[in-house]
Design a protein around this nucleic acid. Structure first.
Lengths: 222, 222
DNA sequence: AAATGTATCAAACAATTGTATGAATGTCAA
DNA sequence: TTGACATTCATACAATTGTTTGATACATTT
């Protein structure tokens, strides 16, 4: 409603329904997956008619593609502002990266479905994954790689850097993928913002000590 | 009704069709998920009639439950024999654990669908997850915890031990969850048995150095 | 006011789904 | 053989799905 004023300048007069459809479809797709999501459910949540999807987006698949784009659009807003100064050390930047990663994935706030949808694309990829990897994931991966390389030192091979990055991402993603199992294994553990911070602390410590003492492991195992 | 009775009493008479159904259903469920899997597809792969599922298992949901049990039955066979002697060090046991974990998850052999099905249960749990956690996952988790505690030392709190175990499992699971993304990020990387071994080597090194130098991280961050 | 084009609506369509049914086939004991 | 039983088969059914259609309401322009 607030943004309606600025949007009116553009072409058509009804920007509301498509946006409501995108938001509702995002929730449903994230929750049920592409095929289990029904157009009727989406339209019902959006307060729109059953024919609205076909009218505004053509068909279900095109709606999904637009949802992915929509999610990507709002995700890039989040991931830029880490709030750390330019001359921060690699260690600090790594910790900020992990914290940001965890928060972005674990948000219970308004755009909660973005993360779930991303997870679905990771696990059961659709045609949308290719552009998703190139536009969203690879930049993040490159950023993490550069941080890791700086912590390890310049003697690290690209393979070692990548493997270490995967180790870090894997630790973060675990708390997202395996949530139902975690809740059953350790029922008393909660995941409020405070706990996420503690989690980021642990992963940072774990990873940083592993990276800094890499030479020790090397001489031990080579 | 009499379906269950007959299934129990003389299973020696016609063990073929139910078993073929379980095997085919395992593949399809793992590949498509519960709701996207069609009975027609399952029966077709099993070389059985469309009515076979309803006859032998009642309905689709009971078939799924039996598939989970069936998968669990064959999984426990794999996970016991790690092939390490009794007086092995904690470090060696950790490495063996990781290697076994990765191999079990990454097998391209005959029972390839067990892992995928497990992943589906992790991500989108059904009623079968509860018993699955208690019977299969928790014992493994306890085993890993004991190993980690031995590496760190007795001064470690239970929370630290658990978090470290999660860090290790997370690294392993990542190469299972995010495979489509990994293939796009690093297309040249292959995952033959040889590569799995190298992977286990990396995760072991990464985790062991993190665990052994835990005190360093502590004084740095506390 | 009339005309035009856009958006929404209820209803119906064809395809696919899980499930049920009754006949046909096979098996084995009496 | 006959008869009882378990199994398999083709077919049908009801429910749900994505999609289409034609009528209707609304806003802007002529």
């Amino acid at each position: 409603m607030d943004v309606l004023k600025s949007e009116i300048i553009n072409k058509s007069l009804s920007p509301e329904t498509p946006e409501r459809l995108l938001e509702a479809a995002g929730e449903v797709f994230a929750e049920k997956g592409f095929r289990n999501a029904t157009i009727r459910d989406i339209c019902k949540r959006a307060g729109a008619n059953i024919a609205a999807v076909n009218y505004h987006f053509g068909d279900k698949e095109h709606l999904y593609i637009e949802v992915i784009k929509y999610a990507h659009r709002t995700l890039v807003k989040y991931q830029t502002d880490l709030g750390l100064d330019d001359n921060a050390s690699a260690e600090e930047r790594l910790k900020a990266f992990i914290m940001s990663f965890l928060l972005r994935i674990h948000e219970d706030g308004s755009p909660a479905w973005h993360g779930k949808l991303m997870l679905r694309e990771l696990t059961e990829p659709t045609r949308a994954l290719d552009t998703f990897v190139e536009d969203t994931i690879r930049p993040q991966f490159n950023l993490l790689n550069s941080i890791v390389k700086e912590v390890i030192g310049n003697e690290a091979t690209i393979q070692e850097v990548r493997a270490s990055s995967f180790s870090i991402i894997g630790q973060c993603l675990f708390y997202f993928h395996a949530m139902p199992v975690i809740n059953r294994l350790v029922p008393q553990q909660k995941f409020k913002v405070k706990d996420i911070e503690r989690l980021a602390e642990h992963i940072s410590r774990f990873s940083l000590t592993a990276l800094r003492n890499r030479d020790e492991g090397e001489e031990k195992y080579r």
